[in-house]
Amino acid sequence: MDVKSNMSRAAMALSAAALACTAACGGGGGGGGAGEEKAGGKTSASAAPGLGKAKDKAPQAPLTAAQLDEAALASGDVPDYKVTKTSEADMPAGSVPAEPAACQPIADMFFFTSTPGAESRTGRTLAAESGLDATVTSLALLAHERSDAEKVIADLRTASDKCTAYKHTDYRYSGVEALPIPEYGDEAVSYRLKGTIEDTTLTMTFTIVRSDSTLAAFYAMKALGGDEVEVPAEVIKAQLAKLEKVRKKSGV
């Protein structure tokens, strides 16, 4: 299968994950909201609180694939959420050009890839067990050299300011909106966009956090629609805490 076909397959799988819980979700949404994030304008990502907090210590070596798997959330780590591992087929490593090029970092992060590329990655999908919450959250841990992780965050910040709409692997995305920077990790970036995939339009909210050399990337979609979708704060906090626990255990 060529890269483009693989990317298209992943796009459909990711949108299907959000739509799959529609039958089980009775009423409206109501996904847990990240208190640190509120809708903002394009200028909200121009500053970066926390940027450089790790500058005064030696960079940590990138985590291994085994360490990432140990650090990633599992069922039971966050109450009331079911966690499944993302297949490699749904996390293609290849990058397909986006139009316009200014949107490339955002297009890549939809598949949890980046330039510079991660040395290893692992992904998870979380769905609330409550039938009242139609939010599906995807996350990935990406192991980088710290300078590369910093560049990925900087490029996403720039792209969320400059990009408004783009085409990628035959799908169209619009309404790219930079959100206020959440105070997680050493630095973070957050933004929102709409994706039209197989005649279905979904709003997606992204939060990407740098913890030294590791990126913890999250995005949320609501199967029942609606613009007010947020990455649940409890998921972000639990993932960062587990990542830090593995890092301390490993001595990195």
Rank of each mutant, 00 (worst) to 15 (best):
L132H: 15
K53T: 11
S75I: 13
R121N: 01
A54N: 12
E88Y: 14
L132I: 10
A13F: 10
T115Q: 10
T64C: 02
A89N: 09
A134D: 06
A93N: 07
V96C: 02
K42Y: 05
A98R: 03
L132V: 13
G50V: 03
V83P: 01
C25Y: 08
T22D: 04
A61K: 08
L126W: 11
A18E: 00
L132P: 03
T122I: 11
L73R: 12
P116W: 14
T113V: 05
Y81S: 02
A39E: 08
D108Q: 09
Q104A: 03
Q104K: 03
E36P: 04
A58I: 10
C25H: 13
A134Y: 05
M91N: 07
E70A: 15
P62D: 02
G32Y: 02
G40A: 15
S130G: 06
A24I: 10
A102N: 04
Y81N: 02
A48Q: 13
A107P: 00
I106T: 05
M12Y: 09
A13R: 09
P49L: 06
L14N: 09
P79Q: 14
G30L: 08
G94P: 05
K42C: 01
A134F: 07
P59L: 07
P116R: 14
D90M: 09
A39G: 14
L14Y: 11
R124D: 00
L63M: 12
E36Y: 14
S46R: 13
G40T: 13
F110A: 06
G40Y: 09
K85M: 05
L63S: 02
A74C: 10
Q67A: 05
G31S: 06
A48G: 07
A20T: 13
S120E: 00
A58Y: 12
E129Y: 05
G41C: 01
T122K: 07
A98Q: 01
T115L: 04
K53S: 12
T115I: 09
D56Q: 15
F110D: 01
E119T: 10
A71M: 02
C103P: 00
P97H: 10
K38L: 12
P62T: 05
A23N: 08
D90H: 13
A134K: 13
A17H: 11
A13Q: 04
P62Y: 04
T86F: 04
A89D: 07
L132M: 14
G31L: 04
G32V: 07
T64H: 03
A127K: 15
M91Q: 13
G35V: 08
P59F: 09
L68G: 03
S46M: 08
D133Q: 08
S87L: 12
A71I: 04
A71S: 04
G33Y: 09
E119S: 13
C25W: 08
G33W: 10
K85A: 10
L126Y: 08
A58S: 14
T115F: 04
L63C: 01
